[in-house]
């Protein structure tokens, strides 16, 4: 007698299935229609094959390293101002995650990685239109809670027992860079967690759940008031280089090329400088 009552928790009865299905079909039809229109929009828009032309239009989808979030968000707005017919959307994440998505067939125009290793993965999969170009550099810094309550002054302090240190997995660029830096300094740490990407480290530290992590200099800048940075001496620091490239089968090649030259140009580089990135 209880068998049926226990299923009732799961089974609901739709009062008007007919109307519901009609609406669902209408929605589906609408979605297909929009998809078709969007498909037209991303067709070959411009005839230029490099420099910014007035003719480019459509959608431009970019997969960019999480550390580029601030700079690229502004970059996209500036790019759209220069090319009003182009709509840019950016997928931020760990470079390793993005590389995996691209290899698995994500329809992306441009890939901007925070390291060479993950770009190489995409190169090896023969998915790049041309050779990646370095467009920015970055360095590492220790991020600690606001006002540095744990009193961290050096990499060696990160090994303190009881200190909650968070990092990323070695596949994620920042995870490997941080490990390199610690190895160089001869410090062994005991991470509390491997976050999905560098912004995960920033969030955990600035929210006060973790005490410290190693992130990019630009992340400490972007965190502003919410966290404090502690410099890592040059001899232990790592120079991170950011390559980007247009992918083969890019749905919007003309806009992709325009994006590449926009970033290499004066305006694009100025935005990157403003966010703390170094010269390529």
């Amino acid at each position: 007698m209880t068998g049926e009552s226990s299923t009732s928790a799961v089974a609901y009865r739709c009062p008007m299935p007919g109307i519901f299905i009609k609406r669902l079909l209408a929605c589906a039809a609408l979605a297909i229609g929009i998809g078709a229109i969007a498909g037209c929009g991303t067709g070959p828009g411009g005839d230029g094959d490099g420099t910014a032309t007035a003719g480019i239009s459509g959608y431009l989808s970019i997969s960019a390293a999480a550390s580029l979030q601030g700079a690229f968000t502004e970059m996209a707005a500036a790019f759209e101002d220069a090319h009003p017919k182009v709509s840019v959307s950016i997928n931020f994440g760990a470079s390793s995650t993005l590389a995996r998505q691209i290899i698995d067939g994500a329809p992306v125009d441009v890939f901007a990685s925070a390291d060479q290793a993950n770009m190489t993965e995409v190169v090896d999969a023969e998915l790049l239109r041309d050779i990646p170009t370095i467009f920015a550099t970055n360095s590492l810094e220790i991020i600690v809670r606001k006002g540095n309550p744990s009193g961290i002054d050096s990499l060696a302090d990160l090994a303190e027992t009881g200190l909650i240190y968070v990092t990323c997995a070695p596949e994620v660029p920042i995870g490997r860079y941080a490990a390199e830096s610690l190895l160089e300094a001869g410090v062994t740490v005991n991470p509390a967690s491997f976050e999905p990407d560098v912004k995960g480290i920033v969030t955990k530290v600035s929210s006060g759940e973790a005490d410290a992590g190693i992130v990019y200099r630009t992340d400490v800048l972007a965190a502003g008031e919410t966290a404090t940075g502690v410099a890592i001496p040059d001899q232990f620091n790592v120079r991170a280089t950011y390559p980007q490239a247009v992918l083969t089968g890019s749905p919007n090649e003309a806009a992709s090329s325009a994006w590449m030259s926009f970033i290499a140009g004066a305006e694009g580089q100025a935005i990157l400088r403003a966010y703390g990135f170094g010269q390529p």
Partner: peptide, 12 residues
């Protein structure tokens, strides 16, 4: 909770 509550309600 959902499953057990439903059973309890269905009980005579």
């Amino acid at each position: 909770v959902l499953t057990v509550e439903a059973a309890l309600r269905g009980l005579d």
